[in-house]
Design a protein around this nucleic acid. Structure first.
Lengths: 85, 85
DNA sequence: CGTTCTATATATAAAGG
DNA sequence: TCCTTTATATATAGAAC
């Protein structure tokens, strides 16, 4: 979006892809922060990126870990049920 | 945003909060899908909401579970390091 | 490679059904 | 309560540094 509408597909050019990744990651974390604040809920985003040295990025609360634990405890059936595409 | 700028704070009115939650959750999942597609990375969002019957919502791939496993394996120090606020 | 600047695409608050 | 419709706030692609 912005200057030009972009097709929703893999960005081949590496520097463009990297730039888009950085900007969108920032936007995504902001959105997570906002919905968390506005609705007083727990939310987190996990991003695995080949660009960052650190492999996982976590926005949001320490409670995130608790959420993960809860997820781990769910049955496989429930996990599938809660997947959204 | 939209018709009126909204202060970034808890929305007291329940129906408004619920509506905002539903819309923003949808937008958030879309963003996750987009960054995933555009940059060919793995990403997921976890949302704990009192509005949904299901307690956790997961956008994105089956690989998400693998990501969580990797996170579980990280040392406490690394977990803290990867938290972003 | 990372930032900042803007024009434009998107997300979304309110309102209406 | 949920879906549409809009007006407006935000996010962000591309450019320039």
């Amino acid at each position: 979006m912005a200057r030009r509408k972009v097709k929703l597909q893999y960005i081949v050019n590496k520097s463009s892809r990297r730039n888009t990744f950085r900007k969108r990651k920032e936007g995504l974390l902001k959105k997570v922060y906002e919905i968390t604040t506005l609705c007083d809920i727990k939310a987190a985003a996990i991003i695995y990126s080949p660009f960052d040295v650190e492999q996982e990025v976590f926005p949001s609360h320490p409670e995130v870990h608790e959420m993960l634990m809860r997820f781990q405890d769910m049955s496989e059936k429930d996990k599938t049920k809660n997947m959204v595409n």
